[in-house]
């Protein structure tokens, strides 16, 4: 690892392969989503969603977001799939044939996509070290987190220390959602199907 090309602070001279991996994975994700939208069996949809989540976790690993990738693999592909299957068990697992052609949603989606593409053209290019996102508070975190908190993992330091108040809010949200599920599902299904 000592001979790693960016060790002296310069970017790696041959970034092509990293970009290529990311692009191939993103293309695979798009294929999965198209297959998912066309599948009518809900069990298949849930399994494809698990595939999609694993691909997302892989992309996040390549994007150096290891903490996020770990969470996505455990949550998106693990717990979400179990919850979807648990809900499917309580419902019917076949989607009805749509009664009308989805022209209006298609039009709205494409229009939104066009607007977003237009907006993204003004964004900094991929992996631009001079992008505003890299020049702001992130530099402070990377330079000082180790000395100020003693935790080499900057993500943990920011999550629990610098932005501890945020994380407290998120934990309360998770707790509230759990309480909501209890409130919704606590009562036994009493009324028979009409």
């Amino acid at each position: 690892m000592d001979t790693w090309p960016g060790a002296d602070g310069n970017l790696a001279p041959e970034p092509a392969i990293e970009t290529l991996i990311i692009e191939v994975l993103l293309a695979l994700m798009m294929v999965t989503v198209v297959a998912l939208a066309r599948t009518r069996n809900l069990f298949g949809v849930v399994v494809l969603f698990g595939v999609y989540s694993f691909l997302m976790a892989t992309v996040l690993t390549v994007l150096d977001a290891v903490d996020v990738a770990m969470t996505e693999a455990a949550v998106g592909a693990g717990i979400s799939t179990v919850l979807f299957l648990g809900a499917l068990l309580l419902c019917r697992s076949e989607e009805a044939r749509p009664v009308h052609r989805p022209w209006l949603p298609l039009l709205v989606s494409v229009a939104v996509g066009g607007l977003l593409v237009y907006g993204s053209l003004g964004m900094p290019v991929f992996s631009d070290p001079g992008a505003p996102a890299h020049r702001h508070v992130a530099q402070h975190y990377l330079a000082n987190a180790m000395d100020e908190t003693g935790a080499p993992n900057v993500v943990t330091a920011v999550l629990a220390s610098y932005r501890g108040y945020d994380t407290l809010g998120e934990t309360v949200v998770v707790f509230t959602a759990g309480a909501g599920v209890i409130a919704l599902l606590r009562r036994r299904p009493g009324r028979r199907k009409p």
Partner: peptide, 13 residues
């Protein structure tokens, strides 16, 4: 994705 720097590594000092 915008946080990635090609040739960089995960933010563990």
């Amino acid at each position: 994705a915008p946080g990635k720097l090609i040739g960089g590594t995960a933010p563990i000092i």
